[in-house]
Amino acid sequence: MSAIIELRGLTKQYDTVRAVDNLTLTVYEGEVFGLLGPNGAGKTTTILMMLGLVEPTDGTARILGIDATREPLKVKQVVGYLPDDVGFYDDLTGLENLVLTARLNGQNDRDAEAAARALLRRVGLEAAADKKVGAYSRGMRQRLGLADTLIKKPKVIILDEPTLGIDPEGVREFLQLIRTLSKEEGLTVLLSSHHLHQVQAICDRVGIFVDGRLIAVGTVEELSAQIFADDRFSVEVAARPLDDRLVEALQRLPGVTRVDVRRETDGGGEAVVRATRDVAADAARAVVAAGAELRKLTRRAYGLDDIYHRYFEGRA
């Protein structure tokens, strides 16, 4: 696997804000990489530096080996970029907007129109091709935006918050479309988002980006192993009665690091048991041994959301 995007010590200092702080990151060929972080984390700034649209204070951004600061035009020839809150010429049709982009990328009129029609079909806008973009819905605009990034036949596409403002159903479809296109065309994709669970499903790897710093990179499984080294496993136990004796017994189980309890009025309750190993069977035995009624037992795997929240807990 060869490196397609290489960021080395990338830094951007605005007057008082360090928007991006010494970012080093490699994205490999054919990958779908998710850059995750809350608003103001520096995602957009990073992306703009990768396109040579913002000059880094320090460090380099290379795409396909081309330095984005020194040769922005060459980078823009091979990178399709979907800005957050993308804008189109509302008084032109979807097709005309795409053709304009194609022509700015050096395609002649006939090829441009053929390519634009083909792409509109791919993103499901065939019927709206000759409608003015002013009449497009938000979801349609995003689809058109995706087609717009693809029309230059890029090697890499960079999507900034592509799911912003689309309804949940639309998000799933849209992300699936990105995934399909990237696998079919062998595209490398970098997308940014602050909605973790949305992009979790389609990213091969993710990077967690907070306050300009990349604090973790890897697959979702790797990240959860990294962050939850102490308590990778968790079991939710609902029992009645859930008294102090039972809670103590749960805490004494080997490998348990923490037990959080939520009691109910009928004497029962729910305990979240965190541990370094799978303690589901032991917990069940403890409940039975205490003479209580076991109402529910669920193993929980950590998702990106939990990972993400962990980071904010840690920061707070």
């Binding site: 970029y81 982009t101 700015l104």
Partner: peptide
């Protein structure tokens, strides 16, 4: 304000 400037400038043009 239309958001088309960024899109234009992300094409390979001066």
């Amino acid at each position: 304000n239309k958001g088309t400037l960024v899109r234009l400038l992300s094409q390979p043009i001066y």
